[in-house]
Simulated scan of single mutants.
Amino acid sequence: MTFPGIEHDPQAPQVNPDMLAVEERRREREAEYGVWVAVQDIPWGTVLAAIPGMPVPASTVERLKWNELGLVAKRDSKAGREVLERTGTATTEERQRWAEQDKAAAEKAAAAAEKPAAKTRTTTTTTTTEGAR
């Protein structure tokens, strides 16, 4: 939090405008390249624009509708995860998040498997012979 007049305080830490610009550019690049990943080779003329696992700019996906053509998938989707794992291009954070999700899913499945076994009841039926009252 900044206080009024802090810009005139010689003791206050100075903000480097170049570092602010660099950080802003990094955020923009992350937003542009952090959403979509190629799931197959994407040709552009006679060259490849992207190969599986490669980040694809969001503006290009929107403009050329590559998501509707099945050429790209969101990084956090099932198809995106599969291609990132297969190509080894997932980030460390993604791998850690997936490990946590897989562990939680395994624990949930184990709990669900134990629940029906604990709730099993036996019922008895009696049959009467015909004519006995």
Rank of each mutant, 00 (worst) to 15 (best):
T2I: 06
I6L: 13
I6W: 10
H8G: 14
H8F: 13
D9F: 15
P13H: 07
Q14G: 15
Q14C: 15
N16K: 14
D18E: 15
L20V: 15
E23D: 06
E23P: 00
E24P: 08
E24H: 09
E24F: 08
R27L: 08
E28K: 10
E28P: 09
R29D: 06
R29G: 02
R29H: 06
E30K: 08
E30W: 05
A31T: 03
A31S: 00
Y33D: 05
Y33P: 10
V35C: 07
W36A: 13
W36Y: 13
W36P: 14
W36L: 11
V37L: 13
V37S: 12
V37R: 12
V39R: 13
I42A: 06
G45W: 03
V47H: 12
A49C: 05
I51N: 14
G53D: 10
V56I: 15
V56Y: 12
A58Q: 04
E62H: 03
K65L: 01
K65T: 01
L69I: 03
V72Y: 08
V72H: 07
V72A: 06
A73G: 07
K74I: 07
R81T: 14
V83T: 13
L84D: 07
E85I: 11
E85V: 10
R86G: 12
G88R: 01
T89L: 05
T89H: 04
T91Q: 00
T91L: 01
T92K: 01
T92L: 02
T92F: 00
E93C: 04
R95T: 01
R95C: 03
Q96E: 00
W98E: 02
A99V: 01
E100N: 01
D102Q: 03
D102M: 04
D102S: 01
D102I: 02
K103Q: 02
A104V: 06
A106F: 03
K108C: 03
A111N: 00
E114M: 05
K115T: 11
A118S: 06
A118G: 06
K119R: 07
K119M: 11
T120C: 06
T120Q: 12
T122W: 08
T123R: 12
T123V: 11
T123Y: 11
T124F: 10
T126M: 09
T128V: 13
E130R: 13
G131H: 11
A132W: 15
A132Y: 15
R133Y: 13
